[in-house]
Amino acid sequence: MKTIKLKKESVQLVKEVLKDIKASPDLGIYKCVQCGMCTSVCPGAKETDYDPRDMIRRVLEDDETVVDDDNIWNCFSCYTCNSVCPCGNNASEINQILRQMSIDKGEGMKKIVSFAAYGDSFMELGVGSIPSNFFDVMVKDIGPGYMDLKINIEDIRTDLGLGSYILPEKAIDEVESILDNSGFKDRLEKIKRCK
């Protein structure tokens, strides 16, 4: 049986969430009445066991295990939950804060390894681009046309009268230097080591 003890434990998850730099100043988490409107419109909740309403409840009840719950990684950050919430709360935002807590703890690092390739594309091309390890999924979602687009992108751009999207060598070097000096590169390597 769960007991709400007279003596309060020192950790209070909701306070940490509200202190986070990502938390909006008018975040309505304390006003949540658990109506479930967020979950009712959540595409993640439809397909997985992710439940934004329950996630908010666990934060309010100081259940720290929510940070380690795999389900928090099923949010698409579409913000539909926020657009319907009658209390001015934002489950997407809270989800991102919890994910960052998980990453800071180390556990969450594994969840973002597959996104490391995005970082590589910044280092190699100077711009963000969908990494090759996602191509199969993209073809599955969009169809074979996706690969045609990928292969013929330069020709298509020329036809449309647009210039090359590949940055000049000098610009790529500059971007790489910024990413290196700002600590981005180190962080990327750290994430990759979690494989």
Binding site: G36, C38, S40, V41, D51
Partner: peptide
């Protein structure tokens, strides 16, 4: 549960909500 949406298909409405007591969309 507080419905977030009412949609219609072929003359039948779908009221979307979470049954918050059984924790089920």
């Amino acid at each position: 549960g507080r419905p977030g949406e009412v949609a219609e298909k072929d003359g039948i409405f779908t009221v979307r909500l979470e049954d918050t007591l059984s924790k089920e969309p």
